[in-house]
Design a protein around this nucleic acid. Structure first.
Lengths: 105, 105
DNA sequence: TTTAAAGTTCTATGATAATCGAACAATAGA
DNA sequence: TCTATTGTTCGATTATCATAGAACTTTAAA
């Protein structure tokens, strides 16, 4: 199995994180991951093709927002909450709180 | 003089704000505006052509991040801090604090 | 060893965007 | 009124991206 690239915490770029979270689909993915905890790609209900989910997962992973680990044929996604808090204190919570307070659910 | 469009506070979209701030040039613009207060386009030192600055100003304005007012031949830009705080409490500060703490200056 | 399940990668497409230079518009000042 | 200043808009270019379907890979299960 090919190892998946995850940036080191110190290498996570603010603009990359903001970009990753500026897409409504990806924002919804991250919101659901925080609400429900670690989930496989398929368990996150999304109105798009699975190849598109895969693409978004990769964008979030390469930006340093989520972690992906392999479990059987599944890929389990989770938010890198501690790493993000270390790198950008308060940022993730401010974004997801804003998301939850508005009508973008 | 053509009136410039500014979205109402309630119409500001989170994903649009995140997208607007995900570009390094625009992030720098907003950082400098908060550091120095209201400034004209030309007073914000940027390593890009003035037509490009104008384009970025428009993106920030239409996303609801900045306000633009006319003063003579100048356009004065300022951050919509109160509106953003009303709409997305803590968001702008979390983003700009993150920016200032990292090496992206 | 087949078969099924879960994702990824490839290819293609249509849309959007970052950039610049040139032309244009509006205003202030000489 | 002419001119300089400030910024916008237009046109073109180049690049990136969101999307989907098809083919492929990997693993688990029958």
């Amino acid at each position: 199995m090919k190892p998946l690239f995850h940036p080191d915490t110190a290498d996570i770029q603010l603009s990359s994180v903001l970009y990753a979270l500026s897409d409504p689909v990806r924002l919804m993915m991250v919101h659901k991951l925080r609400q429900n905890g670690e989930r496989s790609c398929g368990d996150i209900e999304l109105p798009i093709a699975k190849s598109t989910v895969s693409h978004h997962s990769r964008t979030l992973r390469e930006a340093g927002v989520i972690r992906t680990r392999t479990h059987g044929t599944q890929r389990l996604l989770s938010i890198r909450e501690e790493d993000l808090e270390t790198r950008f204190p308060g940022l993730l919570n401010a974004i997801l709180s804003s998301y939850e307070e508005t009508d973008e659910l």
